[in-house]
Amino acid sequence: MTKAKLSKGLIFTLLLIGGIAMSIPFIWLLFSSFKHNKEIIGYPPTFFPETFTLTHYLNLNSRFNIGRYFMNSVFLSTVKTVLAVYTSLLCGYVLAKFNFFLKNFLFKIVLFTMMVPYIITVIPVYQMITDFGWKDQYIAIIAPTILSSFGIFMMRQYIKTGVPDELLEAARIDGAGEFRIFHTIVIPLCVNMISALTIFLFLWNWEDFLWPYLVLNTQDKFPLAVALNMFSGQNTTNYGGLFATSLVTILPVVIVYFMFQKRFVEGISMSGIK
């Protein structure tokens, strides 16, 4: 048994070393954000701050309206996620439980678009958004993600087996309409899947960069990722400021993660199960 114990200990140590290595960039960032700019660019580099300063955090708001960008990100990610989760449920339900002549065709489209790189649509959709006059408006970011092929697929697979036909049948015998059945029976049965998809899509939307970067012009409308890129372009020499700002954009998700750790892990793992 000692041999097994030894290998267990070895595995644990290796994992711990790996885990610490994983967090080093974050720790480095944390320490660096408390250094004076002079120290950051000094040679040779240091790991711990020689003199500790809060300047970068105190000056944060003067050139980077973090509250505004944060709210923009929250708004965009929330609206996009809620819409996509709801439509995924609706489409997934219909594709899973009804027979109609377009069904196979629609499901094939869902599968096909899951495989297709999104980039192929970027240029034409950009041209369309311009022609519609939607540039620099949130609708340009929200509209192309109202449906999520991935979400529809996940929901369809889940509802097919996770929602018993007998239950739906019973409700129909009781005289319930399809929309009521959907809202009062199907949705409550999918709570786990909903929270999984919500977390998954929210993370995706939260770090989305290229599309908002292309279609938004007004600074006040930028989400965090785009604003951070802008900040780094404008403050090429304010190293500490950049570090503090980066840290502040990372922190909210980290806090949310620790609040809902279990849900996060469930969410991610359910995205891979079929």
């Binding site: 960039p25 480095w28 960069f209 990722a225 190293y239 990372i250 993660y257």
Partner: peptide, 24 residues
């Protein structure tokens, strides 16, 4: 706790991560 150590980078926005690693 260990799982969190490995998972945290996943939720960090790629823009921030890339900017920091550029400095690393």
């Amino acid at each position: 706790m260990m799982r969190s150590l490995y998972f945290l980078p996943v939720i960090m926005p790629i823009v921030a991560v890339a900017l920091v690693w550029k400095w690393l």
